[in-house]
Amino acid sequence: MKYGIVVNEGPYQHQASDSAYLFAKAAIAKGHEVWRVFFYHDGVNNATRLTEPPQDDRHIVNRWTKLAEEHKVDLVVCVAAALRRGIKEENLAQGFRISGLGQLVEAGIKCDRLVTFGD
């Protein structure tokens, strides 16, 4: 099955991004395709490459980057939400791209399932 995932909260503050990541990994392990993850609201904060968690903590941003590289997951950050919160091309982590809300709608249209994680 083709999956779309929506992440509405930032990393570390809320569990949403962790839950979404573990869901995506499990879906891929079951042979599904995670076609796109769309980051909206404070979820855009998952995409900054300036993130530096303590050594003994998970690196949420890099984890998404790795998932995108290994499984061709399209990580899309909403441009309007990103600009509001200071996420731009210049601080965008690898594997993410900034685009419009149409990308979320497209995921809803093209994917068999759209699963939302938020607050």
Binding site: Y3, F23, K25, A26, R113, V115, T116
Partner: peptide, 20 residues
């Protein structure tokens, strides 16, 4: 369920909704 079971629940149901 574990995360795999979570995935199965989403595929076995026609649609899903998060009550955020």
């Amino acid at each position: 369920v574990d995360y795999g079971g979570f995935v199965d629940l989403t595929s076995n149901n026609k649609s899903c909704q998060s009550w955020l």
